[in-house]
């Protein structure tokens, strides 16, 4: 007789998925707040008639004084002070931007309440409680709190240097995207002296495995330079070593994204190793490799 044994059999897990559409109403009070943000780029608070506390977002009654309405609009300057913060370092599809990013609790000037929002324009290691910040409004503001795109450090603009060794963190990413045109390929041939008919002569190229002209392998690869030198780590960076393996051809008109990800911090020489991935508009990997760079020194 066949004995069924739980210990020797699999237990099934049933996969399923439900879509959950929803909507909610901000109410008339909340709507005024959102419309002001969207149309006037003005942050409004609402003051309790009893305890005089100012709330952002506005509320009709504070939890202590249900019998006394919050009945006065207060226009706020959109500046504030970081009261607390956290740095998100894991990735999942619903996040507002790629990690690491900073979420700061901003005590708004002129209000008694604080607002949680994205803080950009500085490295995670630079955030401090007490940092003065200002709202940066979205270019195309929607009637949500994201009409404020993010908060950024207030005061004088920071020195134009990229991230230092100390500021760089594993997992930080940056990218640059460009469409490779016929003109790019001809200019690159002039720069490099590589007039190989595979790049220059369509009739010849038809006889090759690719069936048409392709870009020089080093052309898409060169797109990592603006990433490393101008974004991550950024200005002041010296490239020490760049390695690349080509995986697929780049045809004229392809749009290539070069992406760098901090993979390793080398303490001995304060160098950083970044993984470099090159993908086309179909998400296909055209090249992959790595770079070791010397980030700018600060202080």
């Amino acid at each position: 007789m066949n004995q069924f044994s739980y210990s020797e059999s699999d237990a099934f897990s049933v996969e399923g998925k439900l879509a959950l559409p929803y909507q909610y109403f901000a109410g008339t009070l909340g709507s005024e707040f959102l419309v002001s943000l969207r149309d006037r780029r003005k942050l409004l608070g609402r003051r309790c008639s009893r305890c005089k506390k100012v709330f952002v977002p506005p509320r009709s009654h504070c939890e202590h004084h249900l019998d006394a309405p919050c009945d006065e609009w207060i226009e706020l300057p959109g500046t504030g002070t970081v009261r607390g913060f956290t740095v998100v370092r894991y990735a999942e599809p619903y996040q507002p931007c790629p990690p690491p990013y900073i979420l700061a609790l901003v005590a708004l000037d002129g209000a008694d309440s604080s607002l949680v929002h994205l803080l950009k324009g500085l490295a995670p290691s630079e955030v401090r409680v007490g940092l003065e910040v200002k709202a940066v409004y979205a270019k195309d503001p929607q009637p949500t709190i994201l009409a404020i795109d993010h908060f950024a450090p207030a005061g004088k603009p920071r020195q134009e240097l990229g991230y230092s060794y100390e500021e760089l963190e594993l997992g930080m990413t940056a990218s640059f995207t460009k469409t490779i045109t016929e003109t790019d390929v001809y200019l690159f041939a002039g720069i490099s002296g590589d007039f190989n008919p595979l790049h220059m002569n369509e009739e010849y190229a038809k006889t090759t495995a690719f069936g048409t002209r392709i870009a020089h392998g080093a052309l898409p690869q060169s797109l990592i330079a603006p990433v490393l030198g101008m974004k991550l780590p950024g200005l002041g960076t010296l490239a020490v070593e760049v390695q690349c393996a080509f995986k697929a051809p780049t045809f004229f008109g392809d749009t290539i994204t070069a992406k760098a990800t901090v993979e390793e911090k080398q303490a001995e020489h304060k160098r950083v190793k970044l993984r470099c991935d090159f993908t086309n508009q179909h998400g296909q990997l055209v090249a992959t490799g790595w770079a070791v760079v010397l980030p700018p020194r600060k202080g």
């Binding site: 009709s60 249900l66 019998d67």
Partner: peptide, 24 residues
């Protein structure tokens, strides 16, 4: 649409308190 959830609830709570002659 004119009220959010706590605002809606407060209407009923305020009416019940008034009916009972009580405060929060």
């Amino acid at each position: 649409e004119d009220v959010n959830q706590p605002e809606l609830i407060r209407e009923a709570v305020a009416a019940a308190l008034a009916d009972a002659g009580l405060a929060v």
